[in-house]
Design a protein around this nucleic acid. Sequence first.
DNA 1: CTGCATCCCTATGGATACTG
DNA 2: CAGTATCCATAGGGATGCAG
Lengths: 127, 127
Amino acid sequence: MSRRNTDVSDQFSEHACALAEVVDRVSGKWAIGVLVAAAAGPIRFTELERTVEGISRRMLTLTLRNLERDGLLIRTVYPTVPPKVEYELTDVARELHESLAGLTAWAERHRTTIAEARRAYDAKTAG
Amino acid sequence: MSRRNTDVSDQFSEHACALAEVVDRVSGKWAIGVLVAAAAGPIRFTELERTVEGISRRMLTLTLRNLERDGLLIRTVYPTVPPKVEYELTDVARELHESLAGLTAWAERHRTTIAEARRAYDAKTAG
DNA sequence: CTGCATCCCTATGGATACTG
DNA sequence: CAGTATCCATAGGGATGCAG
């Protein structure tokens, strides 16, 4: 057993903090959806609204603003009529998207395991 | 430019969905903190309360229950007096913790970049 | 088409007193 | 020590009408 009260604290400050930041950035129900939808190339507001299923106009706007603010999305306005706005991932966001691949793999590997764990837990809790 | 309306939809269903699941599981302010704190080995309730700074007793309990429910934490009760309960990561959770490394790296690489982007955005918005 | 403003409801989370 | 129960504040998010 390792001496946890001392050496863990350091790891904690470093790891957990940085991790919490990135998760915060990608949390909320919609950020990921938008990120993935935009990963394939520039995409318009309405296209996003259709692609990210279930998102409301308001939440789409808010999510886009936040991602733009963090430098993950580039917003390009074409002053045409009717107006046209395209959103595109920045390089930083692309890196993020790639880093997320590991997580996706994990999720797919253990999806059923987790569902099963949940079922078991709920059954045990209810009974 | 690729045909987005057709081929993106598939990627979307697969990627975004799995990703959203895992992020949901790790979202909330505390799950990550607890996960990281428990990564170094079995840890007791009170130790967690001290290690995960700022967490309330209530939220610690809720977070622990959720992680246990998803099969990410093992809860072991030692029927001693005073009571002693230890929480330990499951193998699945360890895998998750490792997958998270890529994200941590990303966060640390771009932490300042993002902070800067934010500053710039806010300045532009305010002005 | 893009997106802001408003209203309103619910989930999340903090504080804290109490129990086995 | 390890929780549970309760109360309360706030933030997240849905619906929708209005505007450039």
